[in-house]
Design a protein around this nucleic acid. Structure first.
Lengths: 197, 197
DNA sequence: GGTTTATCTGAACACGCGTTCAGATCAAGG
DNA sequence: CCTTGATCTGAACGCGTGTTCAGATAAACC
């Protein structure tokens, strides 16, 4: 059954990252040892170093991958129409994307302080890029005369905080479906930024 | 200068809690050792056990105290008038209170997973109490016909997430004063929940 | 001024940490 | 079928962990 030594393994790498992500989300980076991650995968701790140079880089790569996927995911689905329509698409995309990757979202936010400064700057840059995507939508809506937003940057961060907060309570098997949550939050987002007209 | 042994000290207790709160916020509970906390206070690690039975209880007491202060603080200033006025007061109170205690807010949210289940339940109960305060305001506003909120509980959590998110970017010496931030966010809160009239 | 007593030190305990590496193992290539 | 080489083991390294406790210290009380 469980192969022991010498086994080539294209699947150990992904399994290491999955286990690390889940354990980091559950217990926190500092509280999870390389031995615990290895135990989840079914190998000894030393074997992990075939897949990451060290624990810090393992964390950093998980966060970077998540944020790059987030940016690429939005860029892939972002429509071209009026700002209000783009904003609705952004809202729904954010909710769908983040509720499906709760562990990665959690880790990418909670473990920032465990990054060495060099890695922290990169992750913060990616996060700023995402905020800037939303900020640009808001600015365009203001230019179009359809949105009333005095401080687009701050409103962008407020909306992202509101939307990401869904992860603290949303459960796929809960009372509300994802579609209902999307509708509820899109209504709140729209009212927060919509112009008087 | 630095007193060594035998010194009675009514001030060591608070200093321990202050140092622990700051270090927990900065590096995370698991990454901060009792020796580091003791070093900040200027004592040996063993001396901390005069002020807390163990590290877990030190964390728990910091979180419990923060949330009890939050609830007591709101109850002390909560006005009695129309729901919309109470909501404005809540918004401004939340912003003022939380920006002044960024470390405690951060720790009380980020370190939940490091609480033993018994302590977790207590902290979660206090947090629910706070959410319920806001939910009740929204429900009353709906009853008064002044607010349009389909899901008061979820809207309450959405607004709290939005408001607490201020802590991720607000700096007292920044471009916007606290009064300006209050005004900006009250405007967003009002638009999110205000009825058509 | 002597006694009391809360406070703090400093060493110890058993244990887990991240990381390294020589050697064992076994799937794949010729 | 034999060789190659990637993969993994298992032990080791030095160090830091939370917690305990006997003994040293000095402020407070009579």
């Amino acid at each position: 059954m469980a192969r022991t030594q010498g086994s080539h393994s294209d699947i150990t790498g992904p399994r290491v990252r999955e286990a690390a992500l889940r354990l980091f989300a559950q217990h926190g980076y500092a509280a999870v040892s390389m031995r615990k991650i290895a135990g989840e995968v079914g190998v000894q701790a030393g074997a992990l170093y075939k897949y990451t140079p060290d624990k810090q880089t393992l964390l950093f790569d998980l966060m970077r991958t998540h944020l790059e996927d987030l940016l690429a995911g939005w860029d892939a689905v972002a429509p071209k129409g009026a700002a209000l329509d783009v904003l609705e698409a952004f809202t729904r995309f954010h909710i769908r994307f983040n509720t499906r990757r709760a562990d990665a979202v959690f880790v990418s936010y909670m473990e920032l302080r465990n990054l060495v400064p060099e890695n922290f700057d990169i992750i913060e840059g990616l996060r700023r890029d995402y905020e800037t995507r939303l900020e640009a939508i808001l600015r365009r809506g203001v230019a179009e005369g359809r949105l009333a937003v005095a401080e687009p940057r701050i409103t962008a961060m407020a909306l992202i905080a509101m939307l990401t907060g869904i992860n603290t309570w949303f459960r796929a098997q809960g009372r509300l479906s994802l579609a209902e949550v999307e509708a509820l939050y899109w209504d709140m987002v729209r009212r927060t930024v919509a112009g008087a007209a």
